[in-house]
């Protein structure tokens, strides 16, 4: 079986890759493109560690075939900061000590960023439900929720 050629845009860069039909977008990001920021925690869409934005839509990259990315844009954790400048969400996660081991952090960042783009002023409950698919086993979520709420406030200019 010959491989599939895919042209896509990842974090603003044009990227081409060859993939097997059954490879997921997560497999390709990690093993072929060299972007290991997205993590595989479950491979079944239950943990959110592999979250990326596909054409701006929050998805689990373990539930997307790599071949489906043809002609699409993919955003990963590696593309959130601009050069030396961290995104507000990244800074707030650091300021609030909202990570311990850090394995869920890339997914939390991508998911929170998608939330704040859609809803700049979420309630605590809205943040909690939006992030329900991003499992964190270390923090009990408390500091993560505070960080996202604080980032939202700062991004609103509040």
């Amino acid at each position: 079986m010959s491989k599939i050629h895919v042209s896509t845009s990842i974090n603003g860069d044009a990227v081409e890759y060859l993939c097997e039909p059954e490879e997921t977008l997560l497999d390709v990001l990690r093993n072929r493109v060299g972007l290991t920021g997205a993590k595989e925690g479950c491979g079944s869409g239950d943990c959110g560690a592999c979250s990326v934005a596909l054409d701006g839509r929050l998805v689990c990259s373990c539930l997307v075939l790599a071949a489906e990315a043809e002609g699409k844009t993919v955003s990963t954790v590696e593309g959130i900061a601009e050069g030396e400048n961290l995104h507000v969400l990244q800074q707030k996660l650091l300021d609030h000590a909202a990570l311990q081991c850090g394995i869920c952090t890339p997914g939390i960042l991508i998911a929170s960023k998608a939330l704040l783009e859609k809803n700049p002023d979420p309630t605590e409950t809205e943040v909690r439900y939006w992030l329900a698919g991003n499992l964190c086993r270390c923090t009990g979520y408390d500091k993560i929720i505070r960080a996202v709420m604080d980032a939202a406030a700062e991004m609103r200019g509040a």
Partner: peptide, 9 residues
């Protein structure tokens, strides 16, 4: 059904 991520698909 599922998470916000799953809702995207």
């Amino acid at each position: 059904i599922g998470s916000t991520q799953v809702q995207g698909r």
